[in-house]
Every structure is written in structure tokens, then in C-alpha cells.
Design a binder for these strands. Sequence first.
DNA 1: TGTAAAACGGAGGATGCCTCCATATAACTA
DNA 2: TAGTTATATGGAGGCATCCTCCGTTTTACA
Lengths: 211, 211
Amino acid sequence: MATAKKKSTAPRKPRADAERNRLHLTDVAKKAFAERGADVTLDEIAKRAGVGIGTLYRHFPTRDAMLQAVYRHEVEQLAGAADALLERMKPLDALRAWLRLFVDYLGTKKIILPVLNAATSDNSALFDYSATQIRAAAERLITRAIEHGDVHQDVRPMDLLYAVFGFSTSNDPADWMPRAYRLIDILIAGLASADGPEGTSKRGKGARGAA
Amino acid sequence: MATAKKKSTAPRKPRADAERNRLHLTDVAKKAFAERGADVTLDEIAKRAGVGIGTLYRHFPTRDAMLQAVYRHEVEQLAGAADALLERMKPLDALRAWLRLFVDYLGTKKIILPVLNAATSDNSALFDYSATQIRAAAERLITRAIEHGDVHQDVRPMDLLYAVFGFSTSNDPADWMPRAYRLIDILIAGLASADGPEGTSKRGKGARGAA
DNA sequence: TGTAAAACGGAGGATGCCTCCATATAACTA
DNA sequence: TAGTTATATGGAGGCATCCTCCGTTTTACA
């Protein structure tokens, strides 16, 4: 009775086996994702980890949750890189470099795609973390570039990512990475361009019609 | 025996019921895709069409094959629009308009996405038709714009599509279409920019642009 | 009209997702 | 330390989908 005061809200210390399993699962999952792609069966991960499927699902209710857990670190790293780049170079160059970094991630850990994809969706639980991280990083870069007078266009920061993003979705031949780099250059040039939306070759309402 | 000459290569006229079923299936599938999204069960399509699942699979060995068949028309239309646009406006505006059209397709028939995705992949069977159509259209537009002196950058035509493409993959809030339009403007501005790859804020080594 | 090539249909094997709950176990208590 | 209870575990099994296989039916052709 000594400690008895709270109705029943006494939050027991989390069980050690639970924590252990969660860690072990992310560990195994990371390896599994790396060597078999994003669509390993969850059953397999559970088996590899030597736990029941039920345990896996308790810890990670969805595949996305699992991916999220596994790649949280990568996302943090990528987001963090934005600041490092901003310190080392001019804003627009930093933006370019960061987008390239993003491409690199898409290339190496092709797996990261579904993570961002998930984060991008309205999958509320996941939406929060990764998306926010990345979005914030992108925003910092763009904002700085605007302040510095390098960007004359109006963009949602994430949109640049989406653009690059498209490349990795479409598994073209194989040389998509250099091409994505080229696209980044074009985007940067476009952002820097002083021309307004209706742009370049004509002033009026331009295209649009078509059917 | 009158006609008997060929070893055994006499190719029998295709059976009427087969053709009938194939048509009916694409028809039903089109409706089903439209009203339930891209992931209707194939079993359901078969049921709706009143044929056995086996029949469906014989005609369309994969889901993509089915989508391909259903949206072949849309793809042709989109590809055809490129020429119509080129006749009506300046190359760069035509390109812009066409990209917008592409976005519109992604928006309305969201379903078209997996089709192109399939076409994009090295899924050889499908790769051929749709991808070629779209790719060719994109190429015509770019080429003309270059000839006309409006484009000073080096791009793979498809890359512009990939860029736009990314938007629809990522199911952001909902206003992605206008944003995609903005991105197109930025891309066009970038293409028109005379600056080389290393671009805008720094002179770097590059400047290999301006072909 | 007979016959064999071609098409049909759908049962069922395989796989993967996810839920549910009887059992086991760690944290707490006396 | 033993007892109590909240918490975690494992995996069988329900459900959905994909896709194959093959006995039966239909059609083109002679």
C-alpha cells in the first residue's frame, strides 16, 4: 500500500523481451529488405527472426510501419545533410547537391522509395515522421535559395522531390541516375530563371487548350 | 484435299467465341477499372464478364496485359495529341501543353498510371507498344523544340514524363495537379535556359550545355 | 456430319495478409 | 521468495488473390 495512490495508471516498466524482440526484428528486417527487396514477406521476416508472426504484427502493424522503423535512420541522415550542405555552399548549389543525394539514396537503397511513398501518403501514423523530416529539409533549402535571390519561381519544396522520385519508380534501362542528375540541373535552371510561369516562348495564356 | 498443300501450318481461322470473349472482357474491365480503381480483382472481372477465370487468364496473362489492352486507346490518343499540338503552336508551347495533357490523364484516368508504369518497365511484351507510342511522341516534341532553338538542354524525352509522373505516385493532399502544372513550367523554363549543366549560381567546370 | 484443334470454366494449390487467443513470462508486490 | 497480474508470445487458421491445370465443350474445316 505504500505506493498505492494512482487508481491503476501505474505504468509498468515495459517488458524486456518485448524490447529485445522489437530490436531484433528491425535488425533482421533491414537485412532482409536489403537482400530481397521491398516485398519480402512478413512471414519470412518473422521466421528469420525466430519469432511468431503475431509478434511481428504486434510490433509493426503494417509493412510500412516496419519500413519506417528500419529506415528512420536513413531519413534522418538525409534530412541532416541539407544543413551541412547549406553551410558549405551557396543555397542553389546546396539544393542541387541535396537533390543529387536524394537520387543517390534512391539508387543505393532503392528500398527507401516505399518509405517515402508511405510517408507521402495520408497514412497518418507514418506521415508524421519521415515526411516531416524530409519536407522540412527541402523547405530550408528552398527558403534559403529564395532569400539569397537565386530562385524566382514558386514551388512547393516537396515537388522537386516528387519529380526526381518519378525516375526511380520507372525502371528504365538502368542509366536513370545520370539522367536524374540532368533533370535536377534542368530544374535548378528553371527555378533560377526569371521568367514567370507562362514563361518562355510566348506571353499569353499559352498552351492549355488541347484536347 | 483440294487446298491441301502446306505441311500442317494451315492456320485455322481464329474462333469466333474467343474473339467475342476477348472484346467483352476488355469492355467489362474498362468499366470495372473506372469504377473501382486499378486493383479490381481479376476474378471479379471474370465474374462480371460471365466467363471463367481461366478464360480471362488465357486472353490476358497478366494484370498489366489487361490494363494495356484496355488503355491502348487512351495511349494512342495521347500520342496523337502531340502532333495536333505541334501544328497549332510553337514547339515549346506544344511541349508544355502536351505535358499538361499528360497530367490531365494522370488525373482523370488515374488508372493510366500503372499502364505506363508497366510500359516503362522491362516487361518486354508490353514495353513495345505503349511505351513506344508515348516515347515517340515525346521525342517529336523535343526534337522540334530543339530545331526551333527553344531548348538548350540535353534531355531524354521520357525524362520529362517521369518527372511529372512522380506526382501522381505520391498521393499528396489533393492539389497535386496545379502543382504539377507549375513544375512543368519550371521544367520548360529550365529547358529554355541557356545555362549549361553546372548552371546558374556558379560557373564550375561545366558549361557543356548549349548544344 | 465427323473430327480434332482451340477455347472454355472453375476447382484447387500456392502464397500472403492479418486476427485471435490459449499459453508463457516478466514486472511487481507482500 | 512466492504469488499475482499485466503484458508478450507463437502460430493456427480465416480470408483474399493469384494462377495453373485439365476434363469438357465448342467451333472451324474437310
